[in-house]
Design a protein around this nucleic acid. Structure first.
Lengths: 187, 187
DNA sequence: GTCTATAGACGGATAGAC
DNA sequence: GTCTATCCGTCTATAGAC
């Protein structure tokens, strides 16, 4: 296994810290200390802390959709695919100790103070919605839904609700409630 | 009309700033400047910024449930009450410029770094859920639901999903999607 | 209550030597 | 790439005079 490049280590450490303790609460000094690099080295790779934030978001988005694809790629039945999407978010929450959605977190923290970031998050969520839309459409082609687009939006909302709720409650029962609801809606 | 007390003015200004630009991004100096008070005066009323945060959360909770009660008090039909709950959150989002839920925001920002705050938010959301549970129970007593408790949880999740989604999209169509879904579930 | 001054720590970022 | 030193601003919080 190749040694981890400095660039990658910076992003990895910064990502963990941004995610776990928040962007504003994470200082440059802490990042370089935990990544065990020099400050000059950091500013050699990234022009500013804000630049590092962008790299963090891009990396998280790539990882998110990679995991998403892997979690549904081997499933044939559309209804099972929808369930797999819920399980994917449930798994993410479980393995992070219910730390929440990276993108919702950063929006909550910076609000509209950074147009580039809020745009990025908006587009990210639109992509998520589009993925769900495709899967629900598959289901609808087989089983005839009245309004597949509306159904996709509703599935999306339920999952988002489960994510924020489980982040606060530190339990994942909300995902099971969502699954029950979806199963009732898609006979 | 009585002059606003210093204590109240501090909380009001701090609340606006904490909500709009975030807790960490709001400094003591900005609070005293916009409240037009001296720094000694602030520390006379609050022992620390963290103390002010607690006062902020308590005040927001009181305001939240006040508004909640007012929005449903004149409605008789249980189903209409449920719709009114959705409209209440929709109205909050609209009037705040889609700034999101105060409590989700603070949790996203401080994570588990402050046990008192995460406990407070957890309890707050439990109270919200309990309010919904009561209304859904009313409905169930009239129209017989299979599992009223599960239905209440699902209504709660849909609303939470609509709040975070509208915060990102800056549109309130997600609330209308929730309403359509609820209306379909409660004939 | 008001004001100003300031402590002491930490923020992001830069520069120079190796 | 590493290291240290440093600039300058801001942070929370305290102290003293009025």
């Amino acid at each position: 296994m190749k040694k981890e490049k400095v660039h990658d280590r910076i992003i990895r450490v910064a990502s963990e810290l941004f995610y776990k303790q928040g962007y504003n609460s994470t200082g440059i000094n802490q990042i370089i200390a935990e990544a065990d690099i020099a400050i000059g080295s950091l500013y050699n790779h990234f022009s500013s802390k804000n630049d590092l934030l962008h790299a963090y978001l891009i990396q998280e988005e790539i990882g998110w959709f990679d995991g998403f694809e892997k979690s549904i790629v081997n499933i044939e039945e559309p209804k099972e695919k929808i369930i797999a999407v819920i399980d994917y978010r449930k798994k993410l929450q479980q393995s992070s100790g219910f730390a929440g959605c990276h993108f919702i977190k950063i929006i909550s923290e910076i609000g509209d103070g950074n147009a580039v970031v809020s745009d990025f998050v908006k587009k990210h969520k639109d992509k998520q919605k589009e993925m769900i839309r495709i899967i629900v459409k598959e289901y609808s082609d087989k089983h005839q839904l009245e309004d597949a687009s509306l159904m996709a939006d509703q599935v999306f909302l339920l999952i988002e609700g489960a994510v924020v709720t489980s982040t606060i409650s530190k339990k994942n029962d909300s995902f099971d409630q969502v699954k029950k609801m979806i199963k009732g809606l898609l006979p």
